[in-house]
Amino acid sequence: HPVNIPRREKDFQGMLEYKKEDELKLVKNLILELKPRGVAVNLIPGLPAYILFMCLRHADYVNDDQKVRSLLTSVINSIKKILKKRGDDFETVSFWLSNTCRFLHCLKQYSGDDQFMKHNTPKQNDHCLSNFDLAEYRQVLSDLAIQIYQQLIKCMENILQPMIVSGMLEHETIQGVSGVKPTGLRKRTSSIADEGTYTLDSIIRQLNTFHSIMCQHGTDPELIKQVVKQQFYIIGAVTLNNLLLRKDMCSWSKGMQIRYNVSQLEEWLRDKNLMTCGAKETLEPLIQAAQLLQVKKKTDEDAEAICSMCNALSTAQIVKVLNLYTPVNAFEERVSVLFIRTIQTRLRDRKESPQLLMDTKLIYPVTFPFNPSSLALETIQIPGSLNLAFLTRV
């Protein structure tokens, strides 16, 4: 049911009036008790953010600085509270990340600041805040958005992490390439039935789930790109670290399998139109390690080729892979000590950290590029399911 008596849209000014004593009810119904998987599924993306902003506009319109401050504090604290409570739920975190960003974009778009008004319609310019400059609150909201982003990454890692080694390294999809296991090495997963074992498909399905949730929540495309880049980084780093610690993963055929898996991940990026988000580049150390498993490792020319090819790997990583390299077929040979020395000598002058393992806790700095909305505030209607009948459209 529409909350208010229908009026012509042109009569609305895109504000929502509320009584000071209803503020707690507002944040309870709209933030604390809203279930992203229930009611929120059918909302227009960012609706909670628009509703909160329209309430804020009214507090600004009546020139009540205490009401503005109080609403912003309640909104921010409520978002923090729900994330404390349900911070391990990807959907909840994604939902509030996109709404926090939308709220922040609204604060910019309607700030009255020229730099944020370039894409506004004349009507949107009329809807700019009239009494208060909320630049400092925008900074606080941006800090909050960074916290939520980091929580989203942690949440995503917790889900993805257990799939990576199994899906990227252990599970073999290319039949017949590595029928022979390295001598003396037992395949770690062979005793477990395939059920419960993650495959590359499990990883790709999970990437699809993350992606479609973020799209459904109206997450800014630029933000999705940053999340995907971070996802690929973690996949690449965890895979490479395990390869560097496991002799049974350092064979020609594993190199083949890894390259195939990487190509499938690239295909996923292409399919989602995310080829330019920097995600593929984060896999470069893994790609080079896989190539290193496959190239010839015998002559001085081979050493030269390896040194120029492996610019995303540290000397320690290159040497480790060469040391671990284990022939599985008759046509393969161990890497000679002399060859490894040649590589070490060639790379002596490289300026790099001596680190062997990649930092799996690294999070790339996030930015929230301004993304104004074309939505006209005066057309927004509040679904009855949100239990906000105490708000009045103005």
């Binding site: 944040v27 504090t73 921010i76 509270k81 805040l129 009239s130 208060f132 400092e136 900074q139």
Partner: peptide
């Protein structure tokens, strides 16, 4: 309304300071 009116800057507390202004005291006290 004139297009470039002067708005009053509202000083904001930090995210941490805001947390101390607990709006949910009633339900969080034991």
């Amino acid at each position: 309304r004139p297009p470039s009116r002067i708005r009053v800057l509202l000083k904001a507390p930090t995210l941490e300071e805001m947390e101390e202004m607990n709006i949910f005291e009633d339900e969080e006290s034991p």
